[in-house]
Amino acid sequence: MIVAIGAALLGAVSGTLGTYAVLRRQSLLGDAISHAALPGIAIAFLLTGSKTPLILVLGAAVAGWLGTLFILSIVRLTRIKYDSALGIILSTFFGFGLVLHTLIQRTGNANQAGLDTFLFGQAATILESDVLTIGILGGIAIVIMLVFWKELKLLVFDEGFAASLGLPIRALDILLTSLLVIAIVLGLQAVGAVLMSAMLVAPAVAARQWTDKLSVMMLLAAGFGALAGVGGTIISSSASRIPTGPTIVLCATVVVGFSIVLAPNRGLLWNRLRYQRNKRNLKMLGGQLFQSEEQ
């Protein structure tokens, strides 16, 4: 029960904040952040010897944030393109994280068991204290986002115009990225570094199919995220040793597939029907014109 609540909260938070990541075409930034967070967890553990979720989350957040900072700096200061910078930082940080985790395992520290859940996620390890962490930090992130609602919306829609109004776009950009970092590190334990980005992207992509309104899209994304979280948790805990991350992601994928095909207006099925109808109507019209010409 605790696990399901945790997964639902997590899905809701990452769905909400993932909406902006998708709209800014930064879906892959989430992937880089979650991979970059891994060494942070190991270092936090090495320094403190503790597995307190808050400490590990803090380590993950610092590392994820540093990774993002490196990516943005590389893009700004060199001629290396965004996707290359992303690739470099993602693999470097992730590799470093794997090395550290192996080292920790070699030391035979009895306390280390469980650190590797951060790779693929294990929702079963979610305790009441974790749910509290997710609820409080996720709640704070969402409140901050609501406070700066119109500024962030304008930043994402039209950065140049936002800057001309005097909005501090650099600061808002950092704020929005930091919120994304929070959402990601909260999900690492349950979903894992490898697949966390799907939790940001999938609910938002599915939500976009159903609505043309930002606030509705965010609510829907939160709902889809929570649904996938709960669904994945239940399935993975009913069978032993299925990692939760992949199961949650598969649930989210089902929602995305369903939305892409069936959503009104933007859905594939709808498009197909409209196309057929238009074709039929035009044919009838064409036929009439043809007849009237003959007469």
Binding site: L23, V156, F157, D158, F161, D212, K213, M217
Partner: peptide
């Protein structure tokens, strides 16, 4: 601004 600088598929 130039019209092409924004994503007109933004949900608004």
């Amino acid at each position: 601004p130039q019209r092409g600088t924004v994503d007109w598929d933004f949900p608004t």
